[in-house]
Amino acid sequence: MSRLDEEWPAHRPAVFGAAYRITGSVADAEDIVQDVWIRAHARDGVDDVRDLRAWLITVAARRAYDVLGSARARRVDYVGPWLPEPLLTGPDAAEPVLLDETAGTAMLLVMEELSPPERVAFVLHQAFDVPYEQIADVLGRTPAACRQLASRARRKIAAALPRRPAPVAERERVLKAFRSAYERRDEAALLELLDPDATYTTDGGGRVFAARKIIAGAGRVVTALLRVSARSALRLVPAQVNGRIEFLVYRDGRLTAVDTAEVADGRITAYRRVLNPAKLPSPREGRR
């Protein structure tokens, strides 16, 4: 067995993780993983590469950089708000590379506002500690320029995520209370759990009914949530998505959406629902 074949299972999560963070798409990331595997096997001398993990990650990043350009072009014509494709990580996910904050929904949304080079430089350095010299090879720029790209990306992200997220225990307490209030259709309780300036984003991609604009304000968000649940009973099932407990939404036993939320100061500040069938995970995707 070659070194590549022997070490690939250990490195695959990092390859997938880099591609997913850069593209925001599970499907694109899976395609990139397969492409990296094929390219690695076709390359002479790959078993002699000093740091195979870093080499595989940079190959994935280079391919993801190319994919990101076309993906951003497709999103120009996307119907309604666009949300990243949710990643089921599962309660037993053992790969830290799939669980840190750079793979969270809020972070992925903020990274959409970065230029492609900024996003690649930030992901490679922040999530994978890739040296700027290697990032320079991916982007075709100098190491100094890549350092500036990553620094600029960090400043933009810090400005876009000003509120400190809630600790895990507090977040899960708030979501548990939200789930109970939502399934009871308790309007007053829901209003108490939402920040006055809370937002609600739905991504239907033009394939299913969904709001075409982001809904803002606790009262309007609660009205929208309850209007949908009034048409048919929805069941929220806690699940680990992008490394955190979120909700899988079922209607009549069928997965119809994935909900993610941001919590700060004991209240939900942003609630998001991915409805686009093309983005919904299949059962086999519980672990990467």
Rank of each mutant, 00 (worst) to 15 (best):
Q34A: 05
Q134E: 15
E183V: 09
A145P: 02
T89F: 12
P283S: 02
W37L: 11
V228Y: 13
P277E: 00
P84W: 09
Y200F: 15
R3M: 12
D31C: 08
L87D: 01
Q34G: 13
A159L: 04
A144K: 14
V274E: 00
L226W: 09
A127L: 04
G243M: 14
L98R: 03
A61C: 09
A169C: 04
R72A: 07
D92Y: 15
L190I: 07
A188L: 13
G217W: 13
V33W: 10
G266L: 05
S180K: 11
S151Y: 05
G104Q: 00
S282F: 02
A166D: 11
L280Q: 01
T23K: 04
K156L: 11
A103L: 03
T202N: 03
A103W: 00
E30A: 09
A150S: 06
A159N: 01
L226M: 06
A166L: 12
D35N: 09
Y200G: 05
P162Y: 05
R163W: 09
V168H: 13
W37E: 07
G205V: 02
T223D: 14
A211N: 06
V228N: 11
R231W: 12
S2N: 14
A159H: 00
G80Q: 07
P196D: 12
L255V: 09
P84A: 06
E170A: 11
D137F: 11
V222A: 10
A177R: 11
T142E: 15
V130P: 01
V59E: 15
L275C: 02
R62H: 15
Q240Y: 15
D195F: 04
T269Y: 02
V76G: 05
K176A: 14
M111W: 01
V237L: 14
E101S: 01
M107A: 00
E183N: 06
V208R: 04
D129P: 01
P238T: 08
R152W: 01
C146P: 03
L255H: 06
P196Y: 12
E95N: 06
H125L: 04
T202K: 06
K279M: 08
G286H: 06
R155G: 00
E183P: 05
R267A: 12
R12Y: 11
V258Y: 07
A189D: 10
L139K: 10
R207D: 00
G266D: 01
T199S: 12
G69M: 15
S229A: 13
P283T: 02
A73C: 04
